[in-house]
Design a binder for these strands. Structure first.
Lengths: 189, 189
DNA sequence: GTCTATAAGCAGATAGAC
DNA sequence: GTCTATCTGCTTATAGAC
């Protein structure tokens, strides 16, 4: 699905516009104009505007699900699992900066696939929470409120798409390392 | 402006709908129906849909600006300033959960007031960054990348509106305390 | 693969009655 | 303060020609 097909070109262009203005504010004419064609021509490659959104969001949600599953079953410490989750978000976000905006802000406009998306998201958060709770009982992670930790780390990772385009000088490995430092170790001297 | 006037009622109802579906996907008819009146009746109290959005966003942006200014000029350590910024976000978000969604996701739909909003936001981030940099040179804050610290803390604080409604059992003071723990001290044991 | 033409409905907003 | 009626333009999507 991640080919250079005409459909994928349309999805890529749409994702860029969706990031700038949101799904609802972008029209089929906007997408067509950005591609240099007429709106009606889009329908030779996609079946509806909804079809575009579904492609963007479900692809990404499954990427995260697959990445989390690999981390979950691996035989490493829970702190190391947190590090790998951070790397997972950095890598996916760098490869899909525009698409991440739709995943974060336009998922509620999904129709047929809304429930499926919500299930993937819930499962992802459950797996994430489990790592934190296990790390806490292992004394790898400091005692505290696991919900606040989960929310705090995940909020930062989900917002990366807003920030990565502005810091193109920072290499992925460097960014992951810095994020791990801040999110895992805090900022206090 | 925060009175129980008809205009304020409209803005409040609109903010709730904007949080659920975003500014562009909510119609004047939606807002009117939620108030039990007809769309044309709204125009006796507001001049346009844009007028509603501007009211929501500029009010909040100025709340944050005023809060930051009070913290900036106060004679306390930089770590203590960070703590107070966290409390500022918790308090404003609890009082304006719906409105925070528009501030985060619909600011790009501002028209006349877009530049003004962007200036307030930039100044806010500059003040925040300055506290981190000063804290670092004072050895209150660990040496590291100040941009990553700023982005990481701010992302969490800006996402609070998504999370606070689900955790109504958690008191504001308790939430601030937990957030300070995680954001300032990290999660590692 | 793209076009023109067009359908059918919905958007924000105004005029004027009550 | 709310209503009905209405305007103008834009929305997603389809049919059929090239």
């Amino acid at each position: 699905m991640k080919q250079g097909t005409r459909k994928q070109q349309i999805v890529n262009v749409a994702a860029r516009l969706f990031k700038e203005r949101g799904y609802s504010a972008v029209t089929m004419r906007d997408i067509a104009t950005a591609m240099g064609i007429k709106a009606s021509s889009l329908y030779n490659h996609i079946s509806s505007k909804q079809d575009i959104l579904t492609n963007i969001i479900i692809f990404l949600a499954e990427e995260f699900t697959n990445g989390m599953e690999a981390i979950r079953v691996s035989n490493i410490s829970n702190i190391e699992k947190l590090n790998q989750i951070i790397e997972l978000h950095v890598n996916i976000t760098i490869q899909n900066t525009f698409e991440m905006a739709s995943l974060n802000n336009d998922w509620m406009h999904l129709e047929e696939r809304l429930e499926y998306y919500l299930k993937l998201r819930d499962d992802y958060e459950d797996n994430f929470r489990e790592i934190i709770v296990e790390g806490m009982s292992n004394n790898e992670i400091v005692n505290g409120n696991p919900e606040v930790m989960l929310f705090s780390i995940l909020s930062t990772l989900r917002s990366l798409y807003l920030w990565i385009p502005k810091k193109e000088d920072l290499k992925p490995e460097e960014l992951s390392k810095n994020l791990i430092n801040v999110l895992i170790n805090g900022v206090k001297a």
